[in-house]
Design a protein around this nucleic acid. Structure first.
Lengths: 105, 105
DNA sequence: CCCATAGTTCGAATATTATCGAACTTAAGT
DNA sequence: ACTTAAGTTCGATAATATTCGAACTATGGG
């Protein structure tokens, strides 16, 4: 009935995670880098993780990471805080993220 | 100096494996299916794994799997026998293949 | 030698994707 | 209100990929 105030982002439930789409999302260097740095930092805004890339480009990659279930985004003031959905991914694909994140580079 | 007799396939050494490319190769449903069935069967010819798809399509996917280091192909008569380079992949990316292959589907 | 079999290679059509500028939206600050 | 900051959305372009038919390349058999 009612929309909650400002819900720009839809995050899929774990039951809708699709392995192929996760793998695809992680196969892009920019996105893999985002995931790695989120794993280090715990959370970060979009702007903190652009490597000088345009906002529109980053927004695109964050959307893909959200859509496949890898990243959670919540709004804090005017910034979007992103974090890895590590527990969710682990529960659905045990060991997958760990196997990827142990790689230094 | 000399070419070995008939070496159509080049398989990359483990040191040249690239995580992003592995993930990309595995993100295609056709290729992921090939990898899963090779894991079950141990080895299989190209023809055994086409699901009615044209040979040229399958050849394309096998080439990608070979190029990234996931699959080894050796010629036996007129057929090409394929197998997973599981030990090689495990040595470079421990746990990755397991995390993917435990998924039923 | 001819022929069938198993794949590869080539070429072209189609579809997806990545990238980025420009315009827009929302939230804060002054 | 005006302005800035942080992202998103839209649109276009360029690069990549997938698919598949057709022609080609062995290899093995009769």
């Amino acid at each position: 009935m009612y929309d909650l105030p400002m819900r720009p982002f839809k995050h899929p439930p774990v039951s809708e995670f699709v392995l192929e789409r996760l793998l695809y999302a992680l196969s892009d260097p920019v996105r893999l880098d985002i995931v790695r740095r989120l794993a280090e930092l715990g959370e970060a805004s979009c702007g903190e993780l652009d490597g000088g890339r345009p906002k529109s480009t980053m927004s695109h990659h964050f959307r893909i990471l959200r859509d496949v279930g890898l990243v959670n985004t919540h709004t804090v003031g005017t910034t979007h805080m992103n974090s890895l959905r590590q527990d969710d991914v682990n529960s659905r694909f045990p060991g997958l993220l760990d196997a990827i994140l142990v790689q230094k580079e």
